[in-house]
Amino acid sequence: MAQLADAETLEALARDVAAAPAGQISRIDALLLAFPDDARLHFLRGSILIGEGRPIEAHQSLSRAVALAPDFAIARFQLGFFQLTSGEAENALETWGRLDRLPDGHYLRKFVDGLRCLIRDDFKGAIEALREGIPLNQENPPLNRDMQLIIDQCLPLLNGGEREDSDTVSETAFILRQFSAREH
């Protein structure tokens, strides 16, 4: 049985990370020395690294989190989303495969369905699924903002219009603000 950081430590860490993510990596690394198999720490580390623009290390941390805890749904979703935004659509689809085991009404199922539609250029299907997922998601409001941004960018494409260049999706690293031990 893997040793995990206690809930109090993790909550305090998540609070501090949400307030000021810079400089928290060394703190997490210190915790990882004591709890190397704690998937939540790896996930948190990966989320901060995305925000810091260190994608190679972020990928490593998110992958480690999913390898340690295959049913850690939000980490699995984030890893797939990260792969998708990195141009690795096939890897994203493979990563998300296990999320099909979630109940039908789970917001992550809806978001994944929407993003799968988007990969196929099915913008109508993408908008519908993402819109269904947003009200179902009460635990990660920042993720709703990301999905809403995607919807906003899909809308002009419904009629075959060209999208405007803009910074695509807000940093999903914000999800770490909602980081919670109960996801594990």
Binding site: G53, P55, I56, H59, F82, Q83, L84, T85, S86, G87, E88, A89, L115, C117, L118, I119, R120, D121, D122, F123, A126, I150, Q153, C154, L157, R163, T168, V169
Partner: peptide, 25 residues
């Protein structure tokens, strides 16, 4: 060219990093 839906989501810096990661590691 990537499909439009994929192009919508891709971030240039992450795509570049992904190529480096997969090549180097």
């Amino acid at each position: 060219a990537p499909r439009l839906g994929l192009a919508l989501l891709q971030r240039a810096a992450q795509v570049e990093a992904s190529l480096w990661r997969r090549f180097r590691f």
